[in-house]
Every structure is written in structure tokens, then in C-alpha cells.
Simulated scan of single mutants.
Amino acid sequence: MKIIALSGALRRASYNTALLRAAASMAPAGVSIELRMLHGIPLYDGDVEAEGMPPAVTELREAIRAADALLIGTPEYNNSIPGVLKNGLDWLSRPSGEGGKLFGGKPTALVGATPGGFGTVQSQDALLSVLRAFGNDFWMGGRLMVSKAGAVFDADGRLIDDKVRAQLQQFVEGFVGFVQKRSA
């Protein structure tokens, strides 16, 4: 089984990227979780689209298409999803109708980490609204929202909080089980 872990952050020391790396390290035997970023994807512009799909978009689209499932790590910016993640999804949904073809029925789960105290509940809710239009097969068995992420990861981005580690392990196992049931 192959899961694409898409980070909705660009920052090198992103807590969300660190969370997805930790998830990848917990993948059970026979499962790979491959981290993907949104670097190189330009701001959506219909004129650019008319000239041809940017290579970074095509590469990410093909990785998602080839994967069995999608795990998205989203920060929370101003009580919603970050612009870079929304922009990436906008590109992936082009040309019109591509979002449904790419994401329709794709098992999908959400995680998020933030330095704030409320986790990423609002960004995850906003992201669900965007992805619902594509027909993703959401795993509603769990959402992981990490608060006070500065105390959960060390300076090198390693997960150091045992409680969050246990939650993440349970989350990864639950999502893998969901994907396995869908493909059986």
C-alpha cells in the first residue's frame, strides 16, 4: 500500500511536515508513506494553465493518482487552511473536472499541528469543505489535531511527546485499516 502524505506547509521546520515524517516512520510492514510538498507550484492563473500544466503540478498529480490513499497535514492560518495548500488543490483540480477524477473515492485522512492551543480544528473543517467537492472517501474514524506543537517536537523536528506519539500510531494504524477495507 502506498500513501501520499501531503504537507500543506512550505517552511523547512514545519510542524506539519514533521508530523507527517513521524507518521511515515510508523507505517506498518507493507505500507509506505511518501512525503510530498507543494514547492514549485505557482499561484493559480488560468493563463498559465492555458499555456500548459506546470511540471510540479503534473508530478504531484501523478503521485496522488498512483497512490492508494492520501494523508494531508494542514497548518491553521487565520482560522482556515493555508493559501499554499488551497492553491495546490486548486491546481490539482484543473482542468475543470480533474478534481473529481483525481480525488473521487480516494481514501483520505487529515492531521494538523499548530503552536496554538486549539489544534487545527478550523483548518481541518475548512479543508473538508474543499475536498468534499472532489468526492474523497474520508476516514472519519479519527482526526489528529496537535496543539502547542513547539513542545511536541524538538528543534530538529523529531516527535518527542509520548502521548502524541501514541495518538499518531493509533491514527496511522486506523487509517491503514480503513484503506485496506476499501481495497479488499
Rank of each mutant, 00 (worst) to 15 (best):
M1V: 13
K2A: 02
I3C: 03
I4S: 06
L6I: 11
G8V: 07
G8P: 06
L10Q: 11
R11P: 09
S14G: 11
Y15H: 14
T17H: 04
A18W: 02
L20N: 06
R21G: 01
R21W: 00
A22C: 03
S25F: 04
S25D: 14
S25P: 01
S25C: 08
M26Y: 10
M26F: 09
P28V: 05
P28E: 03
A29R: 14
A29P: 14
S32G: 13
S32V: 14
I33E: 01
E34Y: 09
E34P: 10
L35V: 15
R36N: 06
M37E: 15
H39Q: 13
G40T: 10
I41E: 02
L43T: 10
D45K: 00
D47M: 01
V48E: 05
A50V: 02
E51P: 00
E51I: 08
E51N: 11
E51S: 13
G52D: 06
M53E: 15
P54E: 01
A56R: 08
V57K: 10
E59G: 04
L60V: 03
R61T: 03
E62K: 12
A63I: 03
A66D: 14
D68L: 02
L70F: 10
L71R: 10
T74S: 15
Y77D: 01
N79W: 09
N79E: 07
I81C: 07
I81V: 15
P82Y: 11
G83N: 09
V84T: 15
K86C: 01
L89H: 11
L89P: 10
L89N: 10
W91Q: 04
L92G: 01
R94E: 02
S96C: 04
S96A: 08
E98W: 12
G100R: 14
L102F: 02
L102Y: 05
L102V: 02
G104K: 12
G104T: 13
G105H: 08
K106Y: 03
P107D: 03
P107A: 03
T108V: 09
A109Y: 12
A109I: 12
V111A: 00
G112S: 06
T114L: 00
P115H: 12
P115V: 07
T120C: 05
Q122S: 04
Q122L: 03
D125A: 14
L128M: 11
V130Q: 05
L131T: 14
R132E: 07
D137E: 13
D137K: 15
F138P: 04
F138S: 01
F138K: 02
W139T: 08
R143N: 12
L144Y: 10
L144V: 11
L144H: 09
V146S: 12
S147A: 15
K148R: 15
K148T: 14
A149D: 06
A149V: 07
A149Y: 08
G150K: 02
G150N: 09
A151T: 15
V152G: 02
V152P: 02
D154K: 00
G157P: 06
R158G: 00
L159S: 12
D161V: 00
D162Y: 02
D162R: 11
K163C: 04
K163S: 13
V164Q: 00
Q167I: 02
F171G: 04
F171E: 05
V172F: 04
V172Y: 04
G174K: 09
G174F: 10
V176D: 00
G177P: 04
F178V: 11
V179C: 05
K181N: 08
R182W: 05
